[in-house]
Amino acid sequence: MTDCGCEKAKADLEEYLHHELERSEYADISEHLAHCEDCSDEVHLGQVLTDAVKRACRDTAPEELRVQVISSLRLTITH
């Protein structure tokens, strides 16, 4: 493993947070984060935001709104 540097770590932040990187890339970024406070702070912020979005996505729209949206989409598709 090699330290990938700040540029690579920040560029791949989203993929890192969602475990969408190859093992070697994930390991390189993890190693970098262990030694870089700035990038670790970015990852922490990214994780907090990701968790907030996940919580928000658990909420569902009221049934009346869902019916209106689906009806509107169907009208758009048929015209």
Results as ranks from 00 to 15, higher is better:
Thr2Trp: 02
Cys4Ile: 06
Cys4Lys: 01
Gly5Phe: 01
Gly5Ile: 01
Glu7Lys: 09
Lys8Leu: 06
Ala9Ile: 07
Ala9Leu: 08
Asp12Cys: 00
Leu13Val: 03
Leu13Gly: 03
Glu14Tyr: 05
Glu14Asn: 06
Glu14Gly: 04
Glu15Pro: 00
Tyr16Lys: 01
Tyr16His: 07
Tyr16Met: 05
Tyr16Glu: 00
Leu17His: 02
Leu17Tyr: 05
His19Gly: 02
Leu21Ser: 04
Arg23Lys: 15
Arg23Val: 12
Ser24Gln: 06
Ser24Gly: 02
Glu25Gly: 01
Glu25Arg: 07
Tyr26Gln: 11
Tyr26Asn: 10
Tyr26Glu: 03
Tyr26Phe: 07
Tyr26Arg: 07
Asp28Glu: 13
Ile29Gly: 01
Ile29Val: 03
Ile29Pro: 01
Ser30Val: 00
Ser30Thr: 04
Glu31Asp: 05
Glu31Tyr: 10
His32Arg: 05
Leu33Tyr: 08
Cys36Trp: 02
Cys36Asp: 10
Cys39Trp: 07
Ser40Met: 06
Val43Leu: 07
Val43Gln: 12
His44Ala: 11
His44Gly: 04
His44Asn: 14
Leu45Tyr: 12
Gln47Pro: 01
Val48Ser: 09
Val48Gln: 10
Leu49Pro: 07
Thr50Asn: 09
Thr50Phe: 04
Ala52His: 14
Ala52Phe: 09
Val53Arg: 14
Arg55Gln: 14
Arg55Phe: 07
Arg55Ile: 13
Ala56Lys: 06
Arg58Lys: 13
Asp59Tyr: 14
Thr60Asp: 15
Pro62Arg: 12
Glu64Asp: 11
